[in-house]
Design a protein around this nucleic acid. Structure first.
Lengths: 343, 343
DNA sequence: TTGAAAGCGCTAACAC
DNA sequence: GTGTTAGCGCTTTCAA
């Protein structure tokens, strides 16, 4: 039905010129209140929505952002929480009248072919801004290509690829609660990430003069059986951790279960933090706290910044493109408490 | 650098008119081989990529598909494997020169507001086709809105919302392997899905004359402790299931662990199938088979069909929009075997 | 087989 | 403040 309504129709209905309609939808101050009112009324009456394609052609702004990521090797699980990015990103973009497009660079693709693919997309879609997702954020050739076209760029660094260290932060937080006997159980999908977190954890304990990292560390992801045994062997003795950091959500649940069987109350006798979230952690008894890098928020922030740059007519494409600091988020849940007085 | 190359530049370089260039990129047969060759050479030489916006305006085809989904209520995990859809969808679309856009309808949004939001997006982006993702696939008002604009539509039905019943299929498969004592442990995020699977499972067992569904069924998702107990209580006795279906991946791992402690060999003494995949299932010993509805494939198929309809100049928007049958995929892994002779 | 003309719907300059 | 004039880069007629 509504197909075919143009700015012309709106202009006629409001008895103004197309330009005035254009000024209204572009928030130009140079429109009289009366005209503006008539135009807005006509717009809603007709249900008109300006065509992105037309605006793109005429205005030189596509109101479109492009997020580029590296596709997973076949069978490999994707390292990126794409759904979170999509959710957070589209929400921000849509709110500002922008669209967000995702572009997948084939996993095993050569540098040259990848550049070509991106170049093609840039040419076709003419995005107003591009976000390079890890591990592409470090590809300077892609960055150069983008900025060479005069397009704004942001690079997203997230957990594991990032300066922020969840292992360190978790240990720090627990130490702040008075804990000294803090354990760590690896379980990240990527061993490199585990090493990174582990190093951070060790740093904190060393700084606090604790030697728990000598006794209470599992460097490799345990399966269910191993995790059960491990937790039992740590928690049954009198000298035991008062807090445990687990990289995987599953292991956190195992620890919780073992604690329960040993009559250890969480969080009174044992604090628990996972470095990975999962719905199950929120519904366990008690729910288990999580410290992780929320990918959605920084991504949304990157989108916002790109849009702001365009809106501000700021023609500073190759300006700042600092990688976002990977901020960590602590989901406080009932599994955290101050350390018991003496241990 | 390359910014500003237009069809005009290519035409000049190839010593033809713009039309000829246009014909070449649109695969018109009415171009001489020589002209075509010159044009193609010029295109690659200049690195020209036709502007989507311009093509959209002039041609009436945006080469853009829109996937609409319902956003998750805050805190709620998304019911849709968005990343899989994104991966599979963009791959198919990009291969055909199309783009795929995702639109999120606010979760608690009213029907009217949802329609308005979709209408706005349809007007702005002018997609060539729209895919309604569950649970939006059943919203006839949205379907009508889309087709009213002359836009092709597909609706995707996936697991749980779909005719295909993973519980039934899993039971059927195990029965085909000779199993009669087949157990079922619920664990889907959505209880309605569990009910659905459970019903299917019961149907199969009843048809086979088995009464296992009287003894070996857990209707509510057990937590870790409950799952351990449950598995032990079922597997320790002489009369026990020879196969177990678990809805959650985590529970499958628990069962595997218990079986190991009881010296039951999987799959010799016990077959195992999960209705949810997870990387951990692939790396357990033995790896655990999965039967699930892969969302990516049917979604990609829907994209393909929408594109094909456009390419075929088939102006049959309100034509067939049959919901895709939710196909199930069995990932055969070493956890499946024929039932032991006697039990 | 090819080219010329005429837009698609909107915005950027300019006038008024 | 408002209208007018040109296009943006491509495809669609229609002629040749």
């Amino acid at each position: 039905m509504g197909r075919g309504i143009t700015i012309e129709d709106v202009a006629r209905a409001a008895a103004v010129s197309r330009q005035t309609v254009s000024r209204v939808i572009n928030h130009s101050p140079r429109v009289s209140p009366e005209a503006r009112a008539r135009v807005e009324e006509a717009i809603t009456a007709l249900g008109w929505v300006p065509s992105l394609a037309a605006r793109s052609m005429a205005g030189g702004r596509s109101r479109m952002l492009l997020a580029v990521f590296q596709g997973p090797a076949s069978g490999t699980p994707l390292a990126l929480p794409l759904d979170q990015l999509l959710l957070a990103g589209t929400a921000v973009c849509n709110a500002q009248g922008y669209r967000l497009l995702f572009e997948q660079l084939a996993p095993g693709i050569t540098a040259a072919a990848g550049t070509a693919q991106l170049a093609a997309t840039l040419g076709a879609a003419e995005p107003d801004g591009v976000i390079l997702l890890p591990p592409l954020d470090s590809r300077s050739d892609l960055g150069a290509l983008i900025e060479g076209r005069g397009i704004a760029r942001e690079s997203l660094a997230i957990a594991g690829h990032a300066p922020a260290n969840a292992g360190e932060a978790a240990a720090q937080h627990l130490a702040g609660l008075g804990h000294r006997q803090i354990a760590f159980i690896a379980g990240a999908a990527d061993p490199a990430v585990s090493q990174f977190n582990l190093a951070g954890y060790r740093r904190v304990l060393a700084a606090k003069g604790s030697r728990a990292h000598g006794h209470f560390v599992a460097e490799t992801p345990p399966d269910l059986g191993a995790a059960l045994e491990l937790a039992r062997s740590w928690l049954a003795p009198t000298i035991r951790p008062t807090a445990i950091i687990t990289e995987s959500a599953a292991t956190a649940l195992v620890v919780l279960h073992v604690a329960a069987t040993l009559k250890l109350a969480v969080p009174r006798d044992l604090s628990l933090v996972a470095l990975e979230d999962s719905p199950a952690l929120g519904s366990s008894r008690p729910p288990i706290a999580v410290l992780h890098a929320p990918a959605g928020a920084p991504f949304a922030a990157a989108c916002k910044r790109l849009i702001a740059r365009k809106e501000a007519r700021g023609e500073s494409p190759s300006a700042e493109h600092a990688a976002l600091p990977a901020t960590l988020e602590l989901i406080e849940r009932a599994s955290l408490a101050r350390a018991p007085r003496a241990i």
